[in-house]
């Protein structure tokens, strides 16, 4: 079963590895990658807890709407679990 997720729309300051163009967009989990140190702390030399990382697949239609070059093409990105809400 495909697991649908939405990227949170929060805009915290600092070093964040969630691209702004994917915030608020809905995708499916392509694979789970395991736990990785949270870059939002790691970037500042702070103790960084492990957070689950996922590859999430989005359609170009979902990302760019009517402006999509080819709606059924896709973009995959690695998104940390604390940026995702399950649908």
């Amino acid at each position: 079963m495909t697991e649908r997720v939405r990227v949170k729309t929060m805009m915290p300051p600092g070093h964040v590895r969630t691209p702004a163009y994917l915030r608020g967009k809905v995708g499916v989990i392509e694979r789970e990658l395991g736990g990785f140190s949270n870059p939002e702390q790691l970037a500042y030399g702070l103790p960084a807890e492990e957070r689950p990382l996922y590859r999430v697949r989005f359609t170009m239609e979902e990302v760019w709407g009517a402006a999509a070059e080819t709606p059924t093409d896709t973009v995959d990105a690695e998104i940390f679990g604390h940026w995702l809400e399950r649908l």
């Binding site: 969630t18 990785f36 990105a77 690695e78």
Partner: peptide, 15 residues
């Protein structure tokens, strides 16, 4: 060709 799907991979984190 149109029947080929393009999959873009954005290397956003650790892979």
């Amino acid at each position: 060709p149109d029947h080929v799907q393009v999959r873009v991979h954005d290397s956003t984190a650790d892979m």
